[in-house]
Design a protein around this nucleic acid. Structure first.
Length: 876
RNA sequence: AGGCGCGUGGCUCAGUGGUAGAGCGCUUCCUUGACACGGAAGAGGUCGGUGGUUCAAUUCCACCCGCGCCUACCA
């Protein structure tokens, strides 16, 4: 196939692989701090090292690439920085599963061996997703790729941890945490997903010490009673007034515990008496601190009951529950059982029911960090798009609780804290040789690692070299925008805000763009577990990357969750093909010539029209992208290409190209329109636009570094646009008549246009009308006298008259005109009624009144025309 | 419990204080040298319900119904 010949249908597989490699080799993805261009910076939300590309990545990153390619073409020094997250708990699970298949546990390898294993796994398959990002065409600066476990991050994480510790913002303490017994680690509040579970409420009698009925407590978790250290009632609760201060006997254990009063008790719930289990319930823990009660921990890290549980030691928590209930029943202490919906926390990773557990953990004090992060939004240094997400952000920030940052995992950043033989703690940037307090040299490093989000929260500045004061840091921080899904506003965005403000003194980004979550065609959130996830790689294989990208872009309306319906994708694949064929037509007609030069003002009206419309499209796309209205940008381009460039201008150009005198200029206009359109489309459709662009006469090495079209006001021609609209109305009206009377599309017919004013554009573009409407004779007359029997159709104050022997159907035409008259009448009635109301004329905006009047006049004129035609036909 | 969002043609979704748009689907005709992943012409909606504000409401407000999501220590 020669250079200018394109295949009849676009085949993305032929094209896509080549260009990505080309772009990367040419270094077009690279940011250039020394370029002298204004910077534009954004970081990728680093995918998990365990991850593979799913539709959510494809969606948010397509939008990011659209912005990045757009900015790059606009002349910005653009940095889009890629990275991977080490994903502590997720990665550990993956590697543990791998070991399990080999019949081994991580303990068999030991901590260091396991660490090596994880690192080896990352080298081998961890970067899989990064190659998938290449398939999507994303223009990431791979030279600056980072990993949240790389040496720079290790150093930075220590620096941050130690600084915060020194500032009193990181502390260690014994509190109730969310504990996942399967993962064997503490979780932050955010890593717990609360879901209502159908449970029961057990009413259990605690007899009074030394006899007496005692008190009945209601609990959803009877197994925790083994660790009860009190029963609490509301201080004003008359029912229990006499019991307060007395002691009751804890069933099964036989321990005596006090009945105490505390206002936290809800008198309405259950019996109004609540058992207090300080070691296994956050409320009870707080109550116990107020009331000075001891805590008895009855479970181990796997949620198996321990020696404090008496004879139930060694039982799993749910097994124990069953047996305890049975024992209570046997002993007549189970008063009743009622069904009860309980909100239960589940581990975000493995969905195990979380156990509230008393343990020693590291915490980050959040209130002092949140305060500046709230202010940054309040005073507009950072803004959310869509703005309503700020509300969600504020809500969380203002009620923020301290962040448990330690995890009992093996994979992650080790906490830089050491304990000496004398139990002193040393927290240090470098591994200390001796205890900072007593000089003891027997130091053991804390075995915990940090929550993954601790390091990802540093992403915007650590990736630029922090804590070094690099040129990149000065140039690209703060980022211009952060684009991500709402599901990680708290996990990630909020923490970047707090840590960025703390360590850089400036918010990490000016704009936070929040995209929706991709749903399936039934509106369900796509997920692997539901099996309804669209695999982007599969979609790419079947429809091409560009079609996938265009679809995702077109679906990205502000603040909505897009539903990915495959039919829509098929439609946009057709669009890519349409563009391909428009290009094919243009290339076929270039005939190897360079385009002729021309002056805009000298162009024929239709050519001025298409170039003028193109300015409008460019302006609209620009405005849309500037406010992240990706759907609008996609829609504008779709309709410009299909409805205006292809359906009209290319059809018009065909008549010009057939005329040797007009062909060179027509080729030039066509070429300009196509080339500009390709540049407008490139951010969304990088591959097909590059493939075509490279075959056109062009300057520069690649469309991706060509300038983005700016609307040129000198090429806006309102007159040409108006007249072409009139021409389109005329041609469409003729086509409608042809279709109504089932004239074969290829047949040329004779037509007379009755135009008292001479016909305007129809007269000026007579040849065009002939070709577009497939006319043989096309006469324009000023009066309708002496015409033979014809079909008549009013348009723009003129009349179309078609003589068609054999096809003329008076009744059909009357009916058609009658229907049209009805529509006009209905609309005119509405307008008339409105205009008759004095309040409307008095209060509505004058422009609206005037517009209504004009519209009504036009409708009346048209109705008059139809009435006249109907009358004539009646007479005929 | 609080907060947020959604309900527009068969489906998936835009949109607007002045009687509604797109893609796909559907109907009719057409394999005309860019494209049948195409062309031409059409049909199809009382914009969830009820009130209110307004000259005017699908668009603003209130309530209701249905759906989804987020936050939350009710044992």
């Amino acid at each position: 196939m020669s250079k200018d010949e394109l295949a009849k249908a676009y085949d993305p597989r032929d094209v896509e692989a080549r260009w990505y490699a080309f772009w990367e080799e040419q270094g077009f993805f690279r940011a250039d701090p020394g370029s002298g261009k204004p910077p534009f910076a954004i970081v990728i939300p680093p995918p998990n090292v365990t991850g593979s590309l799913h539709i959510g990545h494809a969606f948010t990153l397509t939008l990011q690439d659209v912005i990045v390619r757009w900015k790059r073409m606009q002349g910005f020094d653009t940095l889009w920085l890629p990275g991977l997250d080490h994903a502590g708990i997720a990665t550990q699970m993956v590697v543990e599963r791998q070991l399990a298949r080999e019949g081994r546990r991580k303990e068999d390898l030991g901590r260091e061996g396991f660490d090596r294993r994880v690192r080896a796994w990352k080298e081998e398959s961890g970067g899989k997703i990064l190659n998938q990002l290449r398939l999507m065409g994303f223009s990431l600066d791979w030279d600056r790729e980072r990993y949240t476990m790389d040496p720079g991050f290790v150093r930075a994480v220590r620096e941050v941890f130690v600084s915060l510790y020194e500032q009193g913002l990181i502390y260690r303490g014994q509190y109730i945490v969310n504990w996942c017994p399967r993962c064997g680690t503490a979780l932050s509040d955010l890593e717990v997903e609360t879901e209502p579970v159908a449970g029961q409420l057990w009413y259990i009698r605690y007899p009074e010490a030394g006899g007496g009925e005692g008190v009945v407590v209601a609990t959803t978790r009877p197994e925790t009673m083994l660790g009860d250290t009190a029963v609490a009632v509301h201080p004003d609760d008359q029912r229990y007034r006499d019991l307060v201060g007395k002691r009751v006997v804890l069933p099964i254990m036989g321990r005596e515990i006090p009945v105490m009063a505390d206002a936290f008790v809800d008198r309405e719930f259950g019996t109004g008496a609540v058992k207090i289990t300080p070691a296994h319930d956050p409320n009870d823990f707080q109550a116990a601190q107020r009331l000075g009660l001891p805590a008895i921990d009855i479970m181990d890290e796997r949620a198996v009951l321990n020696q404090n549980a008496g004879k139930y030691a060694g039982r799993d928590r749910f097994e124990a529950r069953q047996e305890i209930v049975e024992q209570l029943q046997r002993e007549g202490l189970l008063v009743k059982t009622t069904p009860h919906q309980v909100p239960l926390g589940h581990c975000q990773r493995c969905h195990t029911i979380v156990e509230p557990r008393l343990s020693l953990q590291w915490y980050m004090k959040m209130a002092p960090l949140a305060e500046p992060a709230i202010r940054a939004l309040e005073d507009g240094r950072t803004a959310f798009v869509p703005a309503r997400w700020a509300k969600t952000y504020f809500e969380w920030m203002r009620n923020i609780r301290d962040w448990c940052v330690s995890r009992q995992l093996w994979w992650g950043h080790r906490i830089p804290a050491w304990t000496c033989a004398n139990a002193h703690t040393t927290v240090a940037r470098e591994d200390p040789p001796a205890c900072a307090t007593c000089g003891n040299r027997q130091l053991a490093q804390d075995t915990d690692v940090l929550d993954t989000w601790f390091s990802s929260g540093l992403f915007p500045f650590v990736t630029l070299g922090w804590p070094e004061k690099t040129r990149e840091l000065a140039r690209y921080y703060p980022n211009d925008v952060m684009m991500t899904g709402f599901d990680i506003i708290f996990f990630w965005v909020a923490r970047m805000m707090m840590l960025g403000l703390r360590f850089m003194g400036e918010a990490p980004f000016r704009t936070v763009f929040i995209n929706g979550l991709v749903r399936d065609d039934e509106g369900e959130k796509m997920s692997k577990t539901k099996g309804n996830d669209a695999d982007p790689l599969d979609l790419i294989a079947r429809h091409g990357t560009d079609a996938v990208r265009f679809t995702l872009t077109a679906l990205a309306a502000a603040g909505t969750d897009p539903s990915l319906a495959e039919e829509r994708l098929v439609g946009y694949k057709a669009f890519v093909n349409k563009l391909w064929n428009a290009s094919r037509f243009t290339l076929m007609n270039l005939e190897g010539e360079r385009a002729a030069s021309y002056r805009f003002a000298d162009l024929p009206q239709p050519s001025r029209w298409i170039l003028s419309r193109m300015q409008a499209a460019a302006a609209e796309v620009d405005a849309a992208l500037a406010e992240y209205r990706f759907d609008v940008a996609a829609s504008v381009l779709y309709h410009f290409v299909w409805d205006e460039l292809c359906d009209w201008y290319i059809e018009i150009a065909k008549t010009y190209l057939a005329d040797p005198a007009r062909a060179p200029v027509a080729r030039a206009v066509l070429l300009e329109a196509l080339e500009t359109t390709l540049r407008l489309l490139h951010p969304i459709l990088p591959f097909v636009t590059e493939e075509i662009w490279q075959r056109l006469p062009h300057e520069g090495p690649s469309i991706m570094v060509a300038p983005y079209p700016r609307p040129d006001p000198s090429r806006v021609d309102a007159g040409a646009e108006r007249e072409m609209e009139a021409l389109r109305r005329l041609v469409t009206a003729i086509r409608t008549l042809r279709a109504t009377y089932e004239v074969e599309p290829r047949r040329r017919i004779d037509l007379t246009l009755v135009a008292p004013d001479g016909g305007g554009v129809a007269s000026a573009q007579r040849e065009l009308v002939r070709s577009l409407a497939r006319l043989e004779r096309f006469d324009i007359v000023r009066g309708a006298a002496d015409l033979p029997q014809t079909i008549k159709q009013p348009v723009d104050g003129m009349e179309i008259r078609i003589a068609m022997a054999g096809l003329f159907d008076l009744a059909a035409e009357r009916a058609r005109l009658g229907r049209e008259r009805e529509k006009i009448e209905a609309e005119a009635d509405g307008l008339r009624r409105r205009l008759e109301k004095p309040q409307f004329v008095a209060r509505a905006k004058p422009a609206v009144v005037a517009e209504s009047r004009e519209k009504l006049a036009a409708l009346q004129a048209r109705r008059g025309q139809i009435d006249r035609l109907l009358e004539e036909m009646g007479a005929a």
